[in-house]
Nucleic acid binder design. Sequence first.
DNA 1: CGACACATGTAACACGTTACATGATTTG
DNA 2: CAAATCATGTAACGTGTTACATGTGTCG
Lengths: 200, 200
Amino acid sequence: MSIKYGLLALLSDADAYGYQLRSRFESATGSVWPLNIGQVYTTLARLDRDGLIEGIGTDGDGRAMYRLTNAGRTELSGWWDTPVAHADRPRDELAIKIALAITTPGVDATAILQTQRRETIRHLQDLTRVKRQSDPDDLSWRLVAESLIFAAEAEVRWLDHCEASLVRHGRTRKTKPGNTSGAADGDSVKDPQATEGTTR
Amino acid sequence: MSIKYGLLALLSDADAYGYQLRSRFESATGSVWPLNIGQVYTTLARLDRDGLIEGIGTDGDGRAMYRLTNAGRTELSGWWDTPVAHADRPRDELAIKIALAITTPGVDATAILQTQRRETIRHLQDLTRVKRQSDPDDLSWRLVAESLIFAAEAEVRWLDHCEASLVRHGRTRKTKPGNTSGAADGDSVKDPQATEGTTR
DNA sequence: CGACACATGTAACACGTTACATGATTTG
DNA sequence: CAAATCATGTAACGTGTTACATGTGTCG
């Protein structure tokens, strides 16, 4: 879904050819998600077929130019007006994996949680490094990076929350409220936005 | 990728047939992601073809049973041991949309951010309601729901952060530090885990 | 000249969705 | 009996990936 509308959005700014669309897409999103060039062409073909864009011959150097049609403009403004629904987002593989790890006998869920936590922290460090080394004036670029950072931080908090829940579950509600350490209560595990220095 | 390993995980517990696998998958993940039954069968066929599972005739009532092979067991334990990489996760349509909204002339990015925020808050309320109405003893179920809650909360914070950044960017660093309202600084926009009562 | 970036495409495949066809069993 | 649920599959299509084929332009 996303790249279809991505191309429409880029074409709403100016006519373009396939190769150009890829580089514009990547300069808008900061090349965090390199866009497959083959797919650009197949998507353009589909959009053309559906009347949302139209091929307008070749420019002076033989590049196949495309232009947004009125139908495409309508489709696009519909996209802008409609929030991204949570319903049609892809399944979260991590959540599924943890759920299955817990319910499958013979699987050490705690070990999986810890391995994953290390991986996510590592990723978080990559992201903050990338962010530090990039032009702070390029807004869209920076916000995309920060989107990933926010998500990764939430993931770490969730992993910690899972581990705490597992422990509590292990002590199968035999202990009464008023327990051992601290921290293991409901939500709010760990401070948010604590990106650096959470390596364990 | 996820459902392939999901089926392997379920089959590592006990032999099963297609229909059964779907209901087990959904009872593990809390039917937040209803699993397409058609795909279960095609995936089983692929797994069989690749030697990770094998069809073992039909049970007494004519249901096509499958069993995990040794190769499948190896593949599965590899999955358990390897953390989910951030590299091969799907693109985040929301982040792309906002990035394009900012870079495309003639698009009201602030309006899009606000519409999205309302939608996400609404979703968050749905999730907390679902969580409240569910069995608190079903760990895996609850954690999956909370995974979505953590992610949605992070999304709201990010959206707020985007809006603040846009405002700051609008005043193109002509104002000096020491400014108008408050709140619009760097990270930590809004308190985390504040699920209820953030409707605006 | 040779390597590399530019530029356009195609083929094969994995994965996901919706929809359809078909039949058995269960239940109101 | 009629409707719902159980159970297995197929077809068509959208979307994404990797890999290949093919040519032009540029630059060291």
